[in-house]
Design a protein around this nucleic acid. Structure first.
Length: 338
DNA sequence: AGCCGTCCAACTATTGAAAC
DNA sequence: GTTTCAATAGTTGGACGGCT
């Protein structure tokens, strides 16, 4: 199922659940949020679901809500809590600083999406817009928000899809988000829909997130330039369990801490990629001293590499004799046991 | 060239229905 | 109750095209 299809299904379901779906009695922007909450409802949602075929992201949905007459309310930041599933690693790098400057100078241009907090009255939970809330809190300004009633499932799907639409979550952040959803008991279907990915990709994403310790991922940070292949490679190196003491030391060094997230990733990768000297392959020679083949051992595998120039067609001959060799081998073992 | 995300095919594991 | 079989879900390895 595509992202659009999922949202469409959710929202059309919501429209059916609300009998007065076409009324549009949204509160004016200046109204207190707790009062306006009940008013921001289905009219806009109905209009939104009707036009969803053309809507790509949750941010577009928020704009659609506003376009269809729904209110943007101002909410004090202390009344807003993050989503129950975090999707972003702390990183106050260049992008974040740019956002701070932009909001300080021009104010908050687009509203965030929140839902009434399911267990705390007079509080709201963010579907998307976490960074803007952090910035506005630091500037002691209220947050412009659209309030919508959302189930847990709808919230995480919208949250994930908004991030997917803006492509602003790094690979590992998406992995942690998927992991968090899994820990919350959401099934694969919801997680796939939320991230807008196929089961194959989700499987790989989760295997990477599962195989690296959370502390290491947090120490590295989002590493936006590292995608699946490099995170998978890092997970493989880490699983080998080598250089653990050196890794611990690296994570505490100022060289590591002062670097940006991508550079921290590279430092860890470089450290875990340091290997001991590779064992020399054994060489098999003919009576005349010509090199016939070499035996290379790695882990549980043994490779027999033939030199086709020194002994042409010898490899084919050996391959043709393998069954007989195995029979001889089994026989020799049974003789030894007797 | 190297890295990325996406997609495909083949495989294994799990689940549930049907047959005995 | 047990076994068999098919369908489904999840995993893995690798190919491919796009991007920098």
């Amino acid at each position: 199922m595509s992202r659009k299809d999922t949202l469409k299904a959710m929202l059309s379901r919501r429209e059916q659940e609300l009998p007065d779906g076409n009324s549009n009695d949204a509160a004016p922007p200046t109204e207190a949020p707790e009062k306006s909450l009940q008013h921001i409802r289905s009219g806009a949602v109905g209009a939104m679901s009707r036009s969803l075929g053309h809507i790509a992201s949750a941010a577009d949905q928020a704009r659609a809500l506003i376009a269809s007459g729904s209110a943007v309310v101002e909410i004090p930041t202390e009344k807003i809590e993050g989503s129950f599933v975090s999707d972003r690693l702390p990183d106050e790098g260049e992008d974040y600083q740019r956002l701070v400057e932009a909001i300080r100078e021009s104010g908050q241009k687009s509203p965030i999406l929140v839902r009434p907090h399911p267990s705390k009255p007079d509080r709201y939970q963010i579907a998307f817009g976490h960074r803007r809330v952090r910035v506005l809190a630091s500037l002691a300004r209220p947050v412009k928000a659209v309030v919508q009633n959302l189930t847990d499932e709808e919230l995480v799907v919208i949250q994930g899809q908004e991030n997917a639409a803006r492509s602003d979550l790094s690979y590992i952040e998406r992995g942690l988000f998927a992991l968090a959803l899994e820990e919350r008991g959401f099934d694969r279907r919801v997680i796939m829909s939320s991230l807008g990915i196929e089961k194959t990709q989700l499987s790989k994403l989760m295997s990477v997130a599962h195989s690296l310790p959370r502390t290491l991922i947090e120490a590295i940070g989002p590493a936006p330039k590292a995608g699946r292949p490099r995170w998978m490679a890092l997970a493989e190196r880490h699983a080998e369990g080598k250089n653990e003491a050196a890794l611990k030391e690296l994570l505490q060094s100022t060289r590591f801490r002062d670097a940006d997230s991508d550079s921290r990733f590279s430092q860890v990768m470089a450290l875990l990629s340091v290997r001991g000297a590779k064992p020399k392959p054994e060489t098999i020679k003919s009576e005349a001293g010509a090199k016939l083949a070499s035996v290379e051992r790695s882990g549980t595998k043994v490779n027999l590499v033939f030199d086709d120039r020194a002994a042409p067609a010898f490899a084919d001959f050996v391959a043709s004799q393998l069954e007989q060799l195995h029979r001889d081998y089994l026989q020799s073992r049974s003789v030894l046991r007797d």
